[in-house]
Simulated assay, not measured.
Amino acid sequence: MSNLQDTIKELELAQIGWVVPDIHAAVKFLSQALGVAGFPEPQLMRAQDLDMSYKGKVVAAEWLTTQTHNGGVFVELVQPLSGQSMFHDYLEKYPLGGTQHLAFRLPISGFEQVTDNLRQLGYAVISEVDHPIARMAFFDTYATTGMVTEIMGITPEGWKAVKQMEKSR
């Protein structure tokens, strides 16, 4: 088993997550003005379907999301629709939207070590997802970085999905 510093070396920036009031306007701007192309049609997501916790409980929440791969990272857009989630909280505080989270990924084998370390450092988990392709934990690092920090532990199946998504751009 590797030590924490060796595990942290495996972390790589994977995604920039923007929460926006109008996902279609954001896609149009990024595509037309900045050439960030390849956004698929936004999909409706439900926290209950993902078994996504919010402050320790799975609560009703819906949002639209889309993402594309650009310049080595994924650009994710999220438009909250209903219910309560960290995305809804962000848009309530910042009605014009903005960068809500940065996601760092590593193999699933290092996920517990990194997330346990962040908990020991006093960072609270806002949301968690345990998906077949990745485990995700979103930490409240607003006071330190101005945004949420997401840690993604990618499973072997997940690495295949990542490679497909990178190529689809």
Results as ranks from 00 to 15, higher is better:
14 A>T: 06
14 A>C: 11
16 I>A: 13
20 V>S: 03
21 P>L: 11
21 P>K: 03
24 H>G: 07
26 A>P: 00
28 K>F: 08
30 L>Q: 15
31 S>N: 07
31 S>D: 14
31 S>W: 01
31 S>K: 01
36 V>F: 10
36 V>T: 01
37 A>C: 10
38 G>S: 12
42 P>K: 00
48 Q>D: 03
52 M>V: 05
52 M>S: 01
53 S>Y: 05
54 Y>D: 00
54 Y>W: 05
55 K>N: 15
56 G>Y: 08
57 K>H: 10
58 V>I: 11
61 A>M: 02
64 L>C: 05
64 L>W: 13
65 T>K: 10
67 Q>K: 12
67 Q>D: 03
69 H>V: 00
70 N>I: 06
70 N>F: 15
73 V>D: 06
73 V>C: 14
74 F>C: 01
75 V>G: 00
76 E>D: 14
76 E>C: 04
78 V>S: 05
80 P>Q: 12
81 L>F: 09
82 S>L: 06
88 H>S: 15
89 D>Y: 07
91 L>K: 02
94 Y>N: 14
102 L>V: 10
102 L>G: 10
103 A>V: 02
104 F>E: 05
104 F>T: 03
105 R>L: 08
105 R>V: 01
106 L>Y: 03
107 P>C: 02
109 S>G: 14
110 G>D: 09
111 F>H: 09
112 E>Y: 10
112 E>L: 07
113 Q>M: 13
115 T>K: 08
116 D>N: 14
116 D>G: 11
120 Q>T: 13
120 Q>K: 12
124 A>K: 14
126 I>L: 15
126 I>H: 05
127 S>P: 03
127 S>W: 04
128 E>L: 06
130 D>F: 09
